Computed example of a mutant assay.
Amino acid sequence: MRLLVLGGTEFAGRALVAAGVERGWEVTVFNRGTRPVPAGVETLVGDRTEPGGLAALEAGEWDVVVDTWAAQPRAVRDTARLLQGRVGRYVYVSSCSVYAFPQPVGFDESAPLVAGDPDAGEVEYPQAKRGGELAVLDVFGAERSLLVRAGLLLGPWENVDRLPWWLRRVAEGGPVLAPGPGGNPLQYIDIRDLAAWTLDAAAAGLHGPYNMVSEQGHATMEELLTACVRVTGSDAELRWVDARTVLDAGVEPWTELPVWVPREETPELFNAVYRQDVSKAVAAGLRCRPVAETVADTWAWMRTEDPDRPRRAPRRTVGLDRAVEERILADKE
Rank of each mutant, 00 (worst) to 15 (best):
L4E: 09
L6I: 14
T9F: 04
F11E: 05
A15F: 05
V17G: 08
R23V: 02
T28C: 10
P38A: 00
E42R: 15
T43N: 07
E50H: 12
G52S: 08
G60I: 10
E61W: 08
V65D: 09
A71F: 14
Q72T: 06
D78E: 15
D78R: 15
R81T: 04
V98I: 15
G106N: 12
F107L: 15
G116V: 11
E122I: 08
V123P: 03
G131E: 08
G132M: 03
E133P: 01
A135Y: 07
V136M: 11
L137M: 06
G141K: 01
S145Y: 01
L147T: 01
G155C: 10
N159Q: 11
L163K: 11
W166Y: 09
W166M: 02
W166C: 03
E172Y: 07
G173A: 09
P175A: 15
L177N: 09
G183E: 15
Y188S: 13
A196I: 01
A202M: 00
Y210N: 01
G217R: 08
E223M: 14
T226W: 11
C228H: 11
R230I: 12
E237M: 10
L238E: 03
W240E: 09
D242P: 07
D242Y: 12
D248I: 00
A249R: 06
V261M: 15
R263D: 08
F270N: 03
F270Q: 03
Y274R: 02
D277Y: 02
S279E: 13
A281E: 00
A283V: 00
A283W: 01
A292W: 10
P307R: 01
P307W: 02
R311D: 06
R311P: 04
A313C: 06
V318Y: 12
G319N: 12
D321F: 04
